[in-house]
């Protein structure tokens, strides 16, 4: 027991975990135990990912992912580039099917219905989900036609019904006040942030069972980002949202649950407040505090 001096060093590294380092084990392709907090299991799940694996050609990009996505909550997928978070998100609406080299094992269930069972009508399946991409992708048509598009292709012809869908969706997307007098203008004339909220309005016009967001703010400035984050908060409860984000602070601000992925594996999954205060795993702590990745 020595008297302290100002030159003593103080290490912030927590004690090394017993046994093998999990990330090294993953990198070696070894067995790996994901840690899922019990709070996740107590939630009612809209989407259930079951022992899901995915290959791009010979490369295995997702390894036995098991996740329940809670109903009405915002779940964020975080992890370094190449960890598989976008691949997992795109597997939910089977966009990956468009690539010939993709092969999968396992399944996902949307409200109990298999997503990957043989004979599933992918078009009908995708109608049950909304997708928002990194870059806003409004269709080259009017603001109004963009929003009502999913209802039109679903056979809705009533002008009154479509007008009601348009207003309700734009209000929920916090865009109504800004575009209510410009509904017939081209969607391309809107700002980037407005275009992204328009895409969210279009996604929710179809009343999706799950809303998938792939880095929805990465092409936006801080003010537009703030509006999207506020919008996500507004949508919480009404929609189940699964969001991929590179921005850790965005994950901590917007999500109820966070899943940390690494090299195609789920590492730790639990309530965001717990994960960002005291994650169970040293590996998660190292990633979210910027000590690696």
């Amino acid at each position: 027991m020595n008297t302290l001096t100002a030159t003593d060093t103080l290490t912030l590294e927590p004690p090394a975990p017993a046994g093998d380092d999990r990330l090294a084990a993953i990198a070696r392709g070894g067995q790996f135990d994901a840690v899922v907090h019990p709070a996740v299991d107590r939630e009612d799940a809209t989407l259930e990912v079951r022992d899901f694996c995915l290959w791009y050609g010979p490369k295995k990009a997702l390894h036995h992912i098991g996740m329940r996505i809670p109903r009405g909550k915002v779940t964020a997928l975080i992890g370094p580039s190449g960890c598989g978070k976008s691949t997992l998100l795109r597997s939910v609406n089977r966009i990956n099917d468009l690539l010939d080299t993709v092969r999968i094992e396992g399944d996902m269930l949307l409200n109990g219905d298999s997503i990957y069972a043989p004979g599933v009508d992918v078009i009908e399946l995708r109608k049950r989900m909304g997708m928002v991409f990194q870059k806003p992708n409004p269709f080259p048509m009017s603001v109004y036609e963009n929003v009502v598009y999913p209802r039109r292709i679903d056979g809705e012809r009533s002008r009154a019904a479509l007008a009601e869908v348009c207003e309700r969706s734009l209000r929920r997307a916090a865009l109504w006040d800004e575009v209510k007098d410009r509904l017939q203008e081209s969607a391309m004339s809107l700002s980037g942030g407005q275009q992204q909220r328009l895409c969210i309005a279009r996604a929710i016009a179809a009343e999706p069972e799950v809303l998938l967001m792939d880095e929805p703010c990465s092409a936006l400035d801080p003010i537009a980002t703030n509006k999207i984050e506020n919008l996500i908060d507004e949508l919480r409860g009404r929609y189940t949202i699964l969001i991929v984000t590179h921005n850790m602070q965005q994950a901590s601000r917007t999500s109820d649950y966070t899943a940390f992925m690494y090299l195609g594996h789920l590492v730790e999954y639990g309530p965001t407040a717990d994960l960002f205060r005291k994650p169970r795993l040293r590996e998660t702590e190292d990633y979210i505090t910027g000590r690696f990745g």
Partner: peptide
């Protein structure tokens, strides 16, 4: 040493 809440074998 609080054990992990639930550990799943992948």
């Amino acid at each position: 040493d609080a054990p992990p809440a639930s550990v799943r074998r992948d």
